[in-house]
Structure formats: structure tokens, C-alpha cells
Design a protein around this nucleic acid. Structure first.
Lengths: 191, 191
DNA sequence: TATTTGACTAATAAACTAAAAAAGTCAAAA
DNA sequence: TTTTGACTTTTTTAGTTTATTAGTCAAATA
């Protein structure tokens, strides 16, 4: 990936997170990057795909950070799960453009984001499924029924908290209690 | 409460749920009720408050149904919690006007709904808090930290699922996993 | 060849206007 | 006490113009 493209992506990300998707014009981005607008279109197909890539980059960063967590060895599954949940919330807290996609107006108008989100969900579920299986194998966990479904449920739970945490600004108030919530879930899946 | 008022409320509720708030005119409602528009204004202050009362009625019904659940005696807390969560989602699935208030345009323009919602939230949290305390007292449950916060988080979680369930039409797909979510939570809070 | 440019067109949004529809009022009537 | 419908006021809608923005492309540059 070219350096310019990388730069444009960063500048676009900053602009979008500052002014929001619709209030950010391609001209704004080009001007900030000291490039002509045509260059933007040389590197990116459209404003939509540019935004999509910005969000994808935020999720890629999230993925990288979470990968580190999931790769912890000699750590029991519940601790990994705890670290995962905390890290996930912490990073999404800073992922302003991802947060904008949580707004209901994005459901209606920008379904082009669905595949990015769907892929992330699938990845998370895979990771969690693997983690749960490890926990089962080591005898640490006990889960009746489909492991996949538990992975799905956990992702569903975290996504369910995204709106109140990020859009309704309850993050700071509830952060302190998040540990307790995680404790409940840990216990819920433990032997 | 007068009979007419009651009738108007019902007719308004049907009209709003069929055409949505903005596409339903007071004339429509009056005509369906075979009354003059002035009568509507005799019974209701404004279109806004009429809609508010319609939503309030849906939430009142929800409250009544949930009260039955919470009043179950000789039933352990986890079962009550399970019944509560399922019933809540089932009733809201049919509460079309409440669902409309989840749309973003309602956040911006009709904050007059906040007190109705806030009151419902507080009521739910009180009920859950009470339920959890009962479970603690009977030795059935075990929860470190603030009980109130658990109640808050549960309500928050359920509210967080409202958008995907109702606005994104994921209800049918996610319904199947809802039981598992409840199972994890139940076990997580049990002794 | 890969990238950049900026004038260009096409599409969208914003700013107005007039007309229509809807909200809300009220004196008289039931 | 409740209802009525003509009435006034406010808000939407539809149509038009203007301005902004998205997106294109032939030519220039490195």
C-alpha cells in the first residue's frame, strides 16, 4: 500500500471523526492533505468506500490488539476473556468512526458497511469459540449445547452494550462496574 | 378516564402504528373516530402528548405483564429473570409505537418522551434490584459489588438489544440465542 | 508507468417560494 | 361537560434556483 494512500486514510479518518461523515467533504480531505481531489479518487473509489476503509482500519487495529490478548499462553480462559472484553471496550471507546456507524441513520443509508462489520463479528466469534474450546478441553469451562452459539451470544452481549456505552456516554460511569459484569459472565461459563 | 378518551387513544394508537407518527394527521384520527378534530384537542393537549400517551399506554401494558412475572411466588429468581427477559422482548416486539421512538429522529425532536422512558427504566431497575436482593437473601444468588449496578447493566443490555432486534429486524434470527444468553447470565449470578 | 492535477460534469444539498395540508383555537351548540 | 366545524397559525410539500459536493478525465508531471 502506497505511502500517500496511507496518509490520505489517516487524514480522512481524522476529518471524519472530527466532523462526522456527511459534514466532511472530499475537498476538505484533499485540501488538508495538500492534494487535488482527483488524487483522492485515484486511491479510493468513492467517499463511501473511503469511509468504509477508515472504519475497516479502526477494526483492523482492534483486531491486532485483540490478537495479542487471544495469543496469551499459560493464562486461563476466563482471564483471557476478561482481558478481551476490557480491551475491546477500551479500543472501541477511541474508535470514533466506528461509533458513528452505530447510529441508526447508518443502518438505513450505509448498508455498505455491513460486510466489514459482519467479517469482524465472524472473526471475534471464531476467536471466542477457539478460546471456549480450549477452556473446555482443559476442564476449566462447562457449557451445555453449541459452543458456537455461546460465542455468538458473547459477541451479541458486547454489541448490546455498545450503544449505551458509546452513544449514550455511559462508558465512564459504568467502566468501574464492568469488572463485576465480566465476573458474572466468567462464572456463567465456568465449571 | 372518560370512555371517549379511551377510544381516541386506541384509535390513535392504531393509526400511529400503521402510518407512523408524522404520516398520521389529527384529522385522520378524528375522522376514524367519527369525531371533530376539536374533540381530540378537548381530550389531548397536542399531537405530541397524544403520541406520548399512546407510547405510555404500551409501556403501561408492558409494566402490567411484567408485574405478573415479578410477582410469581415459589419461583426461583433465575426463572423469574428468564421469564422477565423473554416477556419483555416479546411484548416490545408488538409495541410498534414504542419501537418508533427508538428511531434517531425521535432522539432529536421528541425528547418529551424521555421522562416516560426514564420512569420505565427506573421501574425495571427497581424490580430487578428487588428480585436480585430476594435471590441473595434466599441464598440462591451470589453477587459481588453493587446490586443496583447489576440491575442497571441488565436493563442497559436489554435496551442495547432493542435496536438490532426491532429496528434491524434481527429479532427472529437472534431470538434463538436469547435463551443461551439468559442461561449464561443465570448461571453467572447463581451461588 | 504510476501518480497528480484542476477544470469539468453530474448529483446532492441548501435556500428560497408559493400552495397545500396539518396543527391548534374557540365561540356557539348540543 | 362535551362536541362541533369554521377559523387562524404553523408546518409540510412541491417546485425552483443556487451552491456545494461527489465524481470524471485528458493532460501534465515525476
Amino acid at each position: 500500500m502506497s505511502d500517500t494512500r496511507e496518509t490520505l486514510l489517516k487524514i480522512a479518518g481524522k476529518a471524519f471523526s472530527k466532523y462526522g461523515f456527511s459534514k466532511t467533504s472530499m475537498d476538505d480531505i484533499a485540501k488538508t492533505a495538500r492534494k487535488a481531489k482527483g488524487s483522492l479518487y485515484y486511491h479510493f473509489e468513492s467517499k463511501d468506500t473511503l469511509f468504509k476503509e477508515v472504519v475497516a482500519a479502526e477494526l483492523k487495529f482492534l483486531k491486532e490488539e485483540l490478537t495479542v490478548i487471544f495469543q496469551q499462553e499459560n493464562t486461563n480462559s476466563c482471564e483471557v476473556l476478561r482481558d478481551y472484553m476490557l480491551k475491546r471496550m477500551l479500543i472501541l471507546k477511541a474508535s470514533i468512526n466506528y461509533q458513528e456507524t452505530l447510529r441508526p441513520e447508518f443502518y438505513e443509508f450505509y448498508e455498505f458497511l455491513n460486510d466489514v462489520k459482519t467479517e469482524m463479528d465472524a472473526w471475534e466469534m471464531d476467536q471466542i469459540e477457539h478460546l471456549l474450546n480450549k477452556g473446555l478441553a482443559s476442564g476449566e469451562l462447562e457449557l451445555p449445547g453449541s459452543i458456537r452459539v455461546y460465542a455468538e451470544v458473547l459477541v451479541m452481549l458486547l454489541k448490546g452494550l455498545e450503544t449505551p456505552f458509546f452513544l449514550q456516554g455511559e462508558y465512564d460511569r459504568l467502566e468501574a462496574h464492568f469488572d463485576n459484569l465480566i465476573a458474572v459472565i466468567s462464572k456463567g461459563i465456568s465449571k
